[in-house]
């Protein structure tokens, strides 16, 4: 029956829309609750510091190594293209701008989402599966203040620092390739970079971006963990959703932020 089929399809679409809207609403309410419980959580700084250790310090190696390699590749590829127009000396500004404005926050955010975000989701999801969260509620300990908020703030604090380290390692990698390997003049490398990049707005915009990505990734990670089905399959699905959702959120937010930030630079 075509009428039945149409009704079936419509019902499916309707249910999917309702589900996603209610999830979005739940996530927004969850965000408000996390913020509401933050003062209580931040009063016990030790909890947040522990999360900075797990999501920040332990991500250092992957962030620094990736930054170095991204910088070296940018150096090689950028020099190759720029040299066609006789502008090989502009490598410094090319690498610096692309790292500080875009690649630093975005790639560091993507790595952070897969390295730290997935771990946060899996940890909270497993806590839920093993009923640790329910046990806390039984003991009148608020899991939002004890478990969720410290992880959220740990991520938010770590992300800008990690992005800055990524950019520095990238610039260093480009320096190794450009100056040491290709033989550009070290003075023109740094001079061009300093001449073309301003602290305000270029570097501050990069920092703002990394803070926004930190909030987005941490929120998605704790939300997916808290919302996970308390089964082995549920935890694995939630972890996947964190990585996919956070990566898409970073890329979409990056576009929106770039449109607002560099509108003046284009004209």
């Amino acid at each position: 029956m075509p009428a039945d089929t149409i009704a079936f399809v419509l019902r499916r679409v309707g249910r999917a829309t309702q589900n996603s809207i209610s999830r979005l609403g739940f996530a927004a309410r969850f965000f408000a609750l996390v913020l509401y419980h933050s003062p209580a959580a931040l009063r016990r700084v030790q909890l947040t510091l522990r999360e900075v250790y797990f999501s920040g310090v332990l991500s250092l190696v992957i962030i620094c190594v990736s930054g170095l390699f991204v910088g070296m590749v940018l150096g090689l590829q950028g020099y190759d293209s720029l040299n066609k127009y006789g502008a090989g000396d502009s490598l410094g500004i090319f690498v610096g701008l692309s790292l500080v404005r875009e690649l630093g926050p975005v790639v560091a955010g993507l790595l952070f989402a897969s390295r730290a975000g997935s771990a946060i989701t899996a940890e909270i999801g497993l806590m839920k599966t093993t009923e640790q969260i329910a046990a806390m509620e039984m003991m009148a300990v608020d899991p939002l203040a004890r478990v969720i908020a410290p992880r959220f703030w740990g991520g938010v604090l770590s992300m800008p620092l990690l992005a800055a380290m990524f950019s520095v390692m990238g610039v260093f990698g480009a320096y190794i390739v450009g100056v040491r390997l290709i033989g550009l003049d070290s003075g023109s490398f740094w001079g061009n970079m300093q001449g073309g990049i301003d602290f305000w707005p270029d570097i501050t915009n990069g920092i703002i971006k990394s803070i926004v990505f930190g909030v987005a990734v941490s929120l998605i990670a704790v939300f997916e963990g808290y919302d996970a089905k308390p089964t082995a399959e549920g935890v694995s699905t939630a972890t996947t959703r964190t990585v996919v959702g956070a990566s898409l959120a970073i890329l979409a937010l990056d576009f929106v932020l770039t449109v607002f930030m560099f509108r003046g630079a284009a004209s």
Binding site: G96, S167, V168, M193, Q194, I203
Partner: peptide, 10 residues
């Protein structure tokens, strides 16, 4: 790293 970006890169 942020100070380096501010002083040496920018």
């Amino acid at each position: 790293a942020i100070v380096f970006l501010a002083l040496k890169v920018g």
